[in-house]
Design a protein around this nucleic acid. Structure first.
Length: 926
RNA sequence: GGGGCGGUGGCGGAAUGGCAGACGCGGCGGACUUAAAAUCCGCUUCCCUCACAGGAGUGUGGGUUCGAAUCCCACCCGCCCUACCA
């Protein structure tokens, strides 16, 4: 009977469901393990990337279960978001219908993965049962002063006529169309995540990848310094934040962001026209222009002056868009002698440069002739009472110069120590329909105009349900704005009010979904404390590294805020009842985090390009770039033609130059012709249309998991995904490579089911010992791989073990208990990776009544696993000279003697030194 | 510009101070077959060699060490994050 996955996989999945094998129930008698993998967006089709993320996580969860843990491994859908609404606009399908059809389809696909998901815990964020509590959380944040309304610049896409989320804007362009996005001022809802900045910098309890910690740390961007109070000549205060208070005596001008409140007041009549013109010009600038790398700094003098509080010198006040209104106080003191940006600005507009830090052992700095700002350490000069104070490269209080000046500012009452963060408050409102409603109302007058502050709806009115009969028009406003029955309601006092029509960022939903899984049907709160007390926190979280600074920061913030709002009190009480100490368990949502890499499409040829322009060796500067079908390649072409191999920004690497690879720079002025793109192409669009390897539908190299499952079966696809890559790294898909795991599972099947194992003679003790050694070494290797997320080495160990079993399958050892132990162990070790074939072999072939998935994980016996013969490595001066088989328990003297006796050592004279590494090698130093 | 991660056979990858290339793909040779697929056996880092035996070798150059793919320094290349953050 041959191995036919189609005969066993569906069968076992049905059986497992019938037995509720994967139902996770609270059981205080057993240790718990909450394994979580990031929930998918219901885009319509399960991608190989989902498999790559979920299947190894499942294997590890299964392994934990076999090790005796009570494992929760849930699944759900992050079901609000833009694509559903775009489908509604483009194809006139209601987001509900579109989303539910997709979920239905993806559930089926998820089932074919053979994961141990507990489907009774499924949570879908777009259902009223779910977003009821997303709204409730909003209210909690609002009532605790953590949610507020304020004006903010948002990303506006003129081509899509809508506001975009930050994550949908890449390099100032809409990630989907590559069209520029502009900034627009709108009133928005914010969460005060910045209040938790300091706590979020503490990763002490977390076992998270170092790069994620670094990214979050950089994103939060803590900087230490001081706030210094300047005044205008008229006495208006202007506070600046600086990390370099030690350079205060060198502040020769001030710069305000063009949007700064005081701009209007300080501007003199002579300068007013220039200032207003500059403000208008900056407002028009798109994000791309603002971001362009070497853009020359621009600015305008306001005509006003401020007084430097340490020396009472008047300093001119300028405005410039290199000062951002959203960072610090939106105003800076400019110290051109010691800051590169200020220096460039000062030189351009001929402003005074006054050095106040003198590098030791160098000629005195001269503000007139300096060619660049000096940012290194030195001694303070021209700085009033601080002349001679040392300035180091340390930041903040650790720097003696900075520390001394901060003390001085505080004594004099002209400033104070201050810490500033790059992190901004979290903008959570979206002008969209398909998101969780914000449960707030506004008082209105008879004309329906908003006349007062927002008020929260009472809990009894929750959830605010999304109306279904809305019209989807891309107007830049939420479709809810046009829905009269939704828009107006009355309070319990009979007051007519208008509802908030913005909805929440979908990151709100995913900030607490790990709690909803605990009790998705619970209707007295977001989660059932009885469940939470047992399962929390998440022990292992897996997912893509792209969420490092958004989702993973938000969910940490959410958890800490919930703890401070005392939303875990009941849960803590239940924990105490069961003798579990709640201390520290609500500080972080997920204790361990691991990121998987990305599976890329099989390599395919890049676009074929025709390039005309000027040439210098292998470097080209393009005047015209055209993408053509390579079959249309002209034989005679005055320029460069070939396949696109690589691209970085506007630099293309094209195969087909005279020396193989040519480097082509495409300047802004170049003409770009891309047939697959609608409208006029620009250089900026190269990156959106000329990508070469990453997997995507438009490239035609998508791997379809459904087809793979049909062709090879779930177990083979699972095994291949875990075998072919370093999981944390990912890599390109090789369609041939899957044959390895396919042959492996076939061989395992054949070994156990098809071969006729009978031998006449008695097995030797050595044969049995060798087999048991292999068995126990395999247990160790497979376990180690699972522990460290090195799934590929676990499977390699299983393959090697299978090879060993094949090599002895025609020997008498097959009649021994050692063989029984070996094959039963093989099946148990295989179970987390290939759950269906393992179950079939366990129950149907071996005839065990209980599932293999509830068997205890085999324990390795170190003594059985120990080698009794080792290969002694003999080196001379660190170079390999010989390998000698010796008993494993050889002592040092015998090992040295054996090594020195080797013919291949062939030593002349006495060795200077002999290094002995027990059980490994002898290194003879001459 | 700043920060992070990485670079090992034709390919995916093992090895984290001690036998480089486990395991697999592909390739080559052979068996089976009318033939192909599948399957089985053998070889497969490179150079030299009929073979044995050698030699070189983990991006490049230096260092530490009895010994370095692994640790340190510099450089080159790739990927990711960030981008006037005062």
């Amino acid at each position: 009977m041959a191995y036919k996955p189609e005969d066993i996989e569906d069968k076992w999945r049905e059986q497992w469901a019938a037995e509720s094998l994967y139902r996770a129930r609270v059981d205080w008698e057993r240790p718990k393990h909450y394994a979580l993998t990031m929930l998918p967006y219901p885009s319509g089709d399960l991608h190989i990337g989902h498999w790559f993320a979920m299947v190894p996580s499942d294997a590890r969860a299964r392994w934990m279960r076999m090790r005796g843990y009570n494992v929760l491994f849930p699944m759900g859908f992050d079901a609000f978001g833009l694509p559903a609404e775009n489908a509604a606009i483009q194809r006139n399908i209601h987001p509900w219908k579109w989303t539910y059809a997709n979920i239905e389809r993806m559930r089926g696909q998820l089932r074919t993965m053979g994961c141990m998901f507990d489907w009774e815990r499924e949570a879908i964020s777009c259902t009223p049962e779910y977003y009821h509590w997303t709204e409730w959380f909003f209210k909690q944040f609002y009532e605790h002063g953590l949610a507020y309304r304020s004006e903010a610049m948002v990303n506006w896409s003129p081509s899509l006529q809508t506001v975009l989320a930050n994550e949908q804007v890449i390099d100032g362009k809409d990630e989907r169309t590559g069209q520029p996005v502009v900034q627009k001022l709108m009133t928005q809802w914010f969460f005060a995540i910045t209040r938790y900045a300091e706590q979020l910098l503490d990763f002490e309890q977390l076992d998270w990848p170092e790069p994620v910690i670094t990214m979050q740390t950089n994103w939060i961007g803590r900087s230490e310094g001081a706030k210094v109070n300047f005044h205008t000549e008229d006495g208006d205060p202007i506070t600046v934040f600086t990390t370099r208070p030690d350079t205060l005596w060198g502040a020769t001008f001030m710069v305000l962001a063009p949007e700064h409140d005081l701009v209007d007041r300080v501007t003199t009549d002579e300068q007013r026209e220039a200032v207003e013109q500059y403000i208008e010009q900056t407002a028009r600038a798109t994000e791309i222009e603002r971001l362009s790398t070497d853009r020359e700094k621009t600015g305008v003098f306001t005509g006003g002056y401020a007084i430097n509080p340490v020396n009472n010198e008047p300093v001119p006040i300028w405005i410039a868009d290199y000062v951002l209104s959203s960072y610090g106080t939106g105003a800076i003191m400019a110290v051109p002698a010691h800051d590169e940006r200020d220096f460039a600005f000062a030189r351009k507009y001929d402003l005074t440069v006054q050095p106040v830090i003198q590098p030791e052992g160098e000629p005195d700095l001269d503000g007139e002739t300096m060619e660049e700002a000096y940012v290194g350490p030195g001694v303070m000069v021209n700085s009033g009472p601080f002349g001679g104070t040392a300035v180091t490269e340390d930041k903040g209080r650790k720097n003696p110069g900075i520390s001394a000046v901060i003390d001085y500012l505080e004594e004099q009452g002209i400033g104070e120590e201050s810490v500033n963060y790059r992190l901004r408050d979290w903008l959570i409102s979206r002008q969209r329909y398909w998101g969780s409603p914000i449960p707030m109302v506004y008082p209105i007058n008879d004309e329906g105009e908003i006349v007062g502050d927002p008020q929260p709806l009472p809990d009894s009115k929750l959830p605010v349900v999304l109306p279904e009969d809305v019209e989807f028009i891309p107007s830049g406003r939420s479709p809810l704005t046009y829905h009269e029955p939704f828009l107006y309601t009355t309070t319990k006092d009979g007051e007519r009010v208008r509802r908030e029509t913005d909805t929440m960022d979908t990151f709100m939903c995913s900030s607490w979904y790990q709690l909803r899984y605990l009790s998705p049907q619970y209707d007295e709160g977001p989660f059932d404390p009885q469940e939470a007390a047992y399962w929390l926190p998440v022990d292992v979280y897996t997912g893509g590294a792209e969420h490092a600074t958004m989702h993973l920061l938000y969910t940490r913030f959410f958890t800490k805020a919930m703890r401070d709002m005392e939303l875990f009190e009941e849960t803590a009480a239940v924990m105490r009842e069961h003798g579990r100490d709640p201390e520290g368990l609500f500080d972080e949502p997920m204790m361990m985090l691991r990121n998987q890499g990305q599976v890329l499409g099989a390599e395919r040829p890049g676009d074929y390009l025709l390039i005309s322009g000027s040439q210098e060796g292998t470097r080209w500067t393009a005047e015209r770039v055209e993408v053509i079908d390579r079959r249309d390649a002209p034989e005679d072409f005055d320029g460069l033609q070939g396949e696109l191999m690589r691209r970085t920004e506007n630099i293309l690497q094209v195969a087909g130059g005279e020396d193989g690879l040519a480097t082509v720079e495409v300047p802004e002025s170049a003409e770009v012709i891309i047939p697959s793109m609608e409208g006029e192409a620009r250089v900026d669009q190269l990156k959106h249309y000329l990508e070469i390897q990453r997997m995507s539908k438009s490239k035609g190299n998508v791997i379809n998991p459904d087809e793979l499952v049909e062709q090879y079966g779930t177990d083979t696809v699972r095994t291949y995904l875990m075998f072919a890559f370093d999981w944390q790294k990912g890599g390109p898909w090789d369609p041939e490579g899957i044959k390895g795991p396919q042959r492996f599972l076939n061989d395992v099947w054949a070994l156990l089911v098809e071969s006729d194992l009978a031998a006449e003679s008695e097995a030797t003790d050595k044969a049995m010992r060798d087999l048991r050694r292999a068995t126990h070494q395999t247990i160790m290797r497979v376990s180690d791989g699972l522990e460290s997320f090195s799934f590929n080495t676990s499977i390699a160990a299983l393959m090697a073990f299978k090879n060993t079993l094949q090599s002895v399958q025609n020997t008498p050892v097959v009649n021994t208990e050692a063989w029984t132990e070996a094959v039963e162990t093989l099946v148990k070790l295989l179970a987390p990776f290939a759950p269906h074939i393992a179950e079939e072999l366990w129950r149907n072939h071996f005839g065990h009544p209980e599932s293999v998935h509830v068997q205890p994980w085999p324990e390795a016996d170190e003594e059985i696993a120990a080698e009794d013969v080792i290969t002694l490595i003999v080196q001379v001066n660190g170079k390999l000279r010989d390998r000698i088989e010796v008993p494993a328990d050889i002592d040092e003297d015998a090992a040295r003697e054996t090594a020195l006796a080797s013919e291949k050592v062939n030593l002349e004279g006495e060795p200077r030194k002999v290094i002995y590494v027990p059980g490994r090698l002898v290194n003879i130093v001459t």
